[in-house]
Write a protein that binds this DNA or RNA. Sequence first.
DNA 1: TTTGAATATGCAATCGATTGTTGAAATTTA
DNA 2: TAAATTTCAACAATCGATTGCATATTCAAA
Lengths: 345, 345
Amino acid sequence: MKPKKRTTIYDIAEKLNVTPSSVSRALNNSNYVNETTKKLILKTAEELNYKRNTLASNLRKGQSKTIGVVVPRINQNFFANVIAGIEDATYKQGYNLIICQSNESYEKEVQSINTLINQHVDCIVISVSVDSKNYKHLQNVLDHGIQLIQFDRVVEELETLKVINDNEQASFEAVNQIIEQGYKRIALLEGPQNLAIFRQRKTGYLNALAKNNMPVIDELIIENAWTKELGAKATRKLLGLKQPPDAIFASTSDFSALGVLEVATAMNFKVPSQLGICGYSNEDFTELTSPSITTIDQFSFYMGKTVANLYFQEMENNDTIVVPKIISIKPKVIMRTSTQKLKKD
Amino acid sequence: MKPKKRTTIYDIAEKLNVTPSSVSRALNNSNYVNETTKKLILKTAEELNYKRNTLASNLRKGQSKTIGVVVPRINQNFFANVIAGIEDATYKQGYNLIICQSNESYEKEVQSINTLINQHVDCIVISVSVDSKNYKHLQNVLDHGIQLIQFDRVVEELETLKVINDNEQASFEAVNQIIEQGYKRIALLEGPQNLAIFRQRKTGYLNALAKNNMPVIDELIIENAWTKELGAKATRKLLGLKQPPDAIFASTSDFSALGVLEVATAMNFKVPSQLGICGYSNEDFTELTSPSITTIDQFSFYMGKTVANLYFQEMENNDTIVVPKIISIKPKVIMRTSTQKLKKD
DNA sequence: TTTGAATATGCAATCGATTGTTGAAATTTA
DNA sequence: TAAATTTCAACAATCGATTGCATATTCAAA
């Protein structure tokens, strides 16, 4: 590929015998150019197939109109939807998106952050990896005067803009509904407790038990069961107990819930009559399994849009002091067959 | 957010009483700096929390180490996986990804391309939208000396690097296997024929019929049935025929196949005994439906990696002329329950 | 006709990093 | 000791666009 010479404002200027300044002004639709000259410049630019060099422009203007996004995995439904939502909103404002995935690795997360700082992005949007050990790298973002917005998996101690789900409330409601269906021994598959979202979901579970005067049974709470495989493993253990649970709340993810369902089916536990199952995230597949899986919808696309709009909104009152703001979106329990012990009304 | 002053090479230079040139050379690990000075500069850079301004660097060097990606939808499994694959490979080379989604709209596709040209990306990777009317915008990419790689949905007339699936062959094999299972009247749901991939899949279908001496029955070929809803609609029509098909090949997508399955179930057609169903793409959900859906795996993640590596490879022999190269990946038929009319061996 | 304002354009510095050229100092070789 | 060579660092131009300041031109008002 030969690196072709691209037309610049100098080329246009030379051709028309004006200065680059005027060309620049014309292209930026400034008032300080004669209407006739402006039209002529625009026409010539078109003819020469001129494309502004954003690099140069950004360098001069000290901003990049670019937002960096760091997520654990691009190809996970929830994150893909959030990104789609962000893209949808930012595109309309003429902003670009640079996407990085951390692959749940702390090192890669740090490197991604550094790249984005180097790129002079105007804002960094992040959902931290499980593996996140500390938040020096996030502090660094702030130190560089770059707006930082955390979503979903947030570091609570760090005071930044945040868009989160009300995990505790959602979890509380889900467990409540499970109890209403008549389940008595509800197991919990919990996620890595270093992440706030998983702690909150656990709290919601505990609160629901307490409200219904149900005891907390330690052997029914399984740590770190947040993938399909770990969910399956946990289920094998749970269903092998002397007193197995009659419902399993996979608070970590729908993938985990899928593991539960597969093992339950293999072990000949009838779902939902003998075993209720509830997941988290409303992945597309949850309505396609048989039985379909009860889950919690997080409004991921909307979440993405909210993140983007939060940024634009904060941009506007840039003179005032930044108040760490938290937007909490209330997720919705999607009741499906896997927890329908009672007949439907 | 106050736009903080960031440390530049000038700050470092001033502090150490050397010139910016030396700082630059030290940071780039050039040999033309004294080893002691180099260490000192590196140490000071660290202390001052220096981060290279990639904009300036890129402007000067005339390259951006950035690859632009345009896909119809980010949050569609196939594309998300391809992107993840691209990201995986480019990240290792220190490249960044700018992602745009066309939302299947020609206008947005053109705009996205223009943005990427402005951004001086080194390469543009695209899978065109259904709505793509012409390819002036793609030609424009080439005119600007930017490497262009098309994948999956490619414009055949345009001679660029391409990474595609062998759609015809895959389609041929799938239909063959369906025939081997004993199905006699196989319907085809075809996609918009302006896209080559859909034409190829149709050809594969026709070839398989011909090879098995089976007639082409016009009323069994349904145009433009490429979403879940259109797939469902087509199925209602097909199953209402005097002589309904005993198998439906949704060559367009798994979503379409899902529509088929739902309608078939609703209309009390037994799958696979009365009706065989085959989709395309191996979306995650296809193994979770009941029955699970036979489909074709396109190795999406691998496809992404291939695209990225193709670029890096072409970069190396940049002095030679660019030969339009096509890499064809052979997809794999995933035989599942939905077409298992015969007992398994 | 003169003054003043409004309008248009040019000049030159700037954003931050890179790099070819040049020259001084240090080192090696004769 | 002188000459030749190597090593290191400074200087200055450059990438392309933007913008504050200064100047020139035009036009209307006095």
